[in-house]
Design a protein around this nucleic acid. Structure first.
Length: 118
DNA sequence: TAGGTGACGCGGT
DNA sequence: CACCGCGCCACCT
């Protein structure tokens, strides 16, 4: 199984206007302890260059990867353009903008990986 | 081969 | 809440 292929697939399912955590992505990829690898993948742009990477924040809601975008405020701008509120501490309220339905898609994702040998 | 790193997360205080 | 320590794991050196 190719972890990065899974990351690409899952990333493309993060809803517009919502923020997913590294842990959620890792979990949906079938590797609940690989949250650090999700960050590694995005930082090195593994799995593709046109992913909605700005929608990924850490478990506390902080835009921990902001420094890896074009400019220090690029991620914040992209999120705000989708209606996501980012406070002056570069943090989003996951209660409001979190991807709360992620687990409900887990089965569908697992089957897709199965059928596509990923 | 051994050791260091980090877009992470959780549990304890 | 915030802060801290520790576990985690694919990748580099």
């Amino acid at each position: 199984m190719d972890f990065y292929e899974r990351v690409r697939f899952v990333m493309n399912h993060i809803p517009y206007g919502k923020a997913a955590t590294y842990g959620q992505i890792a979990l949906l990829c079938g590797k609940p302890r690989n949250s650090r690898q999700v960050g590694y993948a995005l930082n090195r742009r593994l799995g593709g260059k046109d992913l909605p990477a700005h929608r990924v924040v850490n478990a506390s809601g902080y835009l921990s990867g902001a420094a890896s975008f074009r400019t220090p405020d690029t991620q914040k701008k992209l999120l705000e353009a989708e209606g996501v509120i980012v406070d002056d501490e570069n943090r989003v309220d996951l209660k409001r903008f979190g991807w709360h339905h992620a687990l409900e898609d887990a089965l569908e994702f697992r089957e897709w990986f199965e059928q596509n040998g990923i």
